[in-house]
């Protein structure tokens, strides 16, 4: 019957076509074995709490949610990473209970919340120190002033501040290569605001990455490199990087847990926040979650690489829960 390789005799197939059901049957079959989720138990609370927001704050909230899940198995806490701004958009639309924020709420976001009748409570949960980093081979930089950092990073520096001796005349005549976060990053917003004086104002001719690990790689492999990123990334890569103390007007201070906590590492340490919907405080599981958050933060925050805020700040937060 084979007239040619491909087209020969015909046969009217009678089998039902199973092209999509074929794939699906297998995939769907897997689903039904998973239906046995954890239903939680005990006399605890129940409900679902949805959070979103900054990926910088995420590790803290993840740690808290993980521990809270053990303490209150009946309550499901889920967390997304839409970014601080994306999170506020959902928060003010009333879609989520809390938002992780790496900066305070902005005016227009607050208005959006007010417009939808969403009232909120702000909790300061941790500090994140930004660290200025050079290569360990760099032996001439011991400290940089905010003024010098501004000279390096301001938009006017593009194409003009290209050598180390453009930063300070007694630095050697070597090319200056820069590494920093991309413009979508909250770290970028904060750094430009504090150092250049205007949020988002930065030179553009530097190696940008939203992934701080890439910046670590870059500076670790470049003798003339300089860059900035979160303190936790320095802590994990200390042997490959050199920390630069920053002089904010009252002497050179290197970021450390102590100097970030007592506020002397200024201006490059920023508070991290959780914003909670005020009306969600009527739900006992939400109150319990936030109480748990603030009580556990002093132990969990350092575990994930950030610095806890002073104890009285957590106390203030707890006081807001009972009001």
């Amino acid at each position: 019957m084979h007239l040619s390789a491909r087209m020969g005799g015909m046969r009217l197939l009678r089998k039902p076509l199973a092209f999509s059901t074929g794939i699906l049957a297998a995939v769907l079959a897997a689903f039904f074995f998973t239906a046995c989720g954890d239903d939680g138990g005990g006399a605890g609370l129940s409900g679902t709490i949805v959070g979103d927001g900054s990926s910088t704050v995420f590790p803290i909230t993840e740690a808290v949610a993980e521990e809270f899940g053990k303490a209150q198995p009946g309550v499901d806490v889920v967390v997304g990473i839409s970014g601080t701004g994306g999170g506020f958009e959902k928060f003010c639309a009333g879609e989520i209970e809390f938002n992780d924020a790496s900066r305070p709420i902005k005016e227009d976001e607050a208005q959006a919340c007010a417009g939808n009748g969403i009232e909120y409570v702000e909790f300061e949960v941790a500090f994140d120190g930004l660290s200025v980093i050079v290569n360990p081979e760099n032996d001439f930089v011991d400290c940089l002033t905010v003024e010098e950092l501004k000279r390096i990073w301001e938009p006017a520096a593009q194409g003009t501040v290209t050598n180390w001796n453009d930063v300070r005349p007694d630095f050697p005549d070597r090319p200056l290569t820069l590494y920093g976060p991309g413009t979508d990053s909250g770290t970028f917003d904060f750094f430009t605001d504090e150092i250049v004086g205007e949020e988002g104002a930065s030179r553009g001719d530097y190696t940008a990455s939203e992934d701080d690990n890439i910046l670590v790689q870059g500076i670790a492999g470049d003798e003339d490199g300089l860059g900035y990123f979160g303190f936790a990334y320095y802590e994990q890569n200390q042997e490959r990087l050199k920390l630069v103390p920053v002089d904010g007007g009252s002497g050179c201070v290197a970021p450390s847990r102590e100097t970030i906590l007592d506020g002397t590492y200024s201006p490059l340490s920023r508070p991290l926040f959780v914003y909670l919907r005020a009306d969600a405080l009527a739900r006992p599981e939400v109150v319990e979650f936030m109480r748990f958050y603030l009580e556990q933060a002093p132990t969990l925050v350092p575990e994930v690489g950030y610095v806890e805020v002073p104890a009285d700040v957590y106390q203030e937060g707890l006081a807001k829960l009972t009001q």
């Binding site: 998973t34 239906a35 995420f58 993980e66 499901d76 967390v79 997304g80 839409s82 879609e95």
Partner: peptide
């Protein structure tokens, strides 16, 4: 998926098509 608000920390597996979820790439 990030845009539509797929989550990252989800301590359960979905039990119905209307459950919240996360995926491997995130």
């Amino acid at each position: 998926l990030i845009m539509i608000g797929a989550l990252l920390f989800v301590p359960f597996t979905p039990g119905s098509p209307l459950d919240r979820f996360t995926v491997l790439p995130i």
